[in-house]
Amino acid sequence: MEVLKVSGIGEKYQSQNGEVTALSNINFSVEQGEFMSIVGPSGCGKSTLLSIIAGLLKPTEGTITLNGKLVSGVSPQVGYMLQRDNLLEWRTILKNILFGLEIQKKLTPENIAYAEHLLKTYGLYEFKDKYPSQLSGGMRQRAALIRTLATNPDMLLLDEAFSALDFQTRLAVTDDVYTILKKENKTALMVTHDIPESISMSDRILVLTRRPGTVRNIHTITFDMEQRTPLACRSHIQFNTYFNTIWNELDVHV
């Protein structure tokens, strides 16, 4: 089943110095339960595309449909994860996790119970009355994910969600997030500049061209293994083949 459909998206920026075409004619769709990544050279409009899909930005051309409905403005069906965890330091972990529900005025006993259930399942329940500064970087990122999941979105958008973490934490957190998303059976779309990260997590990878960004290619990533985890993928023999293919397509010049 198709969760997200992006058709004919184009985006032009207006600035004092003139007009910039950031994206042009982008078409793709994401299936239920799929993990898809978007990679592309820096400045190709990856994050702009994600903002458009989230409803934060209006596209100049084209439409976004989510579960068959046209997107206009921010939809509660979409969860968005940013580069930093953005936990509010004046709120306890529990209050931080309930933030999205509070904004959407959905603080019902059932929803609170669901958020607490997520905290318990993912080992943060005993920290619920602590403040963000008392948690490690990995735990903070997990709390941010739970904050997004608490509103029960159909689709998750990850905007360079791990690039603020140091490398070791990042490997652990990607494994963590991947497992959680698969367990909750969430559809996800991730923007990243990190090719290995996208290969290790994705079912499909969309490669964008340099500006104005258009779809260059979409790769299906499959690994010959029983229980796929990002960390295990990294040491798999097919990993380098995928890396070289995508690297060549990105056409990076220094």
């Binding site: 989230a54 934060l56 403005g73 921010v74 939809s75 509660p76 979409v78 969860g79 968005y80 940013l82 580069q83 930093r84 953005n86 509010l88 004046w90 933030f99 999205g100 509070e102 904004i103 959407q104 509103t151």
Partner: peptide
């Protein structure tokens, strides 16, 4: 005020009033 905090609130659909009372002022 931290731009990213505001963006985070906006991704949940926060209004300007909510952004002020829940992010800008307490921050």
């Amino acid at each position: 005020t931290n731009r990213e905090h505001i963006k985070m609130a906006r991704t949940f659909g926060a209004s300007k009033h909510q952004i002020f009372t829940k992010i800008v002022f307490p921050g």
